[in-house]
């Protein structure tokens, strides 16, 4: 079964949009992440319920104009977000 990716729970993060960049404070590690698109969009799309990678691509495609979405590239970004604690797998 494909892995489901969930955004970290709201209480785990402080998210402050600045401009094109968004500042995210990860409470557990005390680390600040300054992220650009599509990271905030990914977190919003995943939400607490989570999505599989193909479902995430479909959801992002519904909301934004995704030109030739690359599953491998998005998967790599998701893995980075998991390593940073901003996204969880289950």
């Amino acid at each position: 079964m494909a892995a489901v990716y969930r955004a970290a729970p709201a209480e785990a993060l402080r998210i402050v949009p600045l401009d094109a960049f968004t500042a995210i404070y990860h409470r557990a590690s005390g680390i600040t992440h300054l992220v650009g698109p599509p990271v905030p969009e990914i977190l919003t799309a995943l939400g607490p319920d989570g999505l599989t990678l193909p479902a995430l691509i479909a959801r992002l495609g519904d909301t934004y104009d995704l030109l030739d979405a690359d599953e491998a590239a998005l998967g790599a970004r998701l893995d980075e977000l998991v390593a940073a604690g901003l996204v969880r797998t289950a």
Binding site: L18, D19, A20, F21, A23, T32, L34
Partner: peptide, 16 residues
């Protein structure tokens, strides 16, 4: 822009 200001000020803060 705010994003750049934020980044520069985290570097300009000794206790951030």
């Amino acid at each position: 822009a705010p994003g750049e200001v934020f980044m520069r000020l985290t570097q300009a803060s000794t206790n951030y």
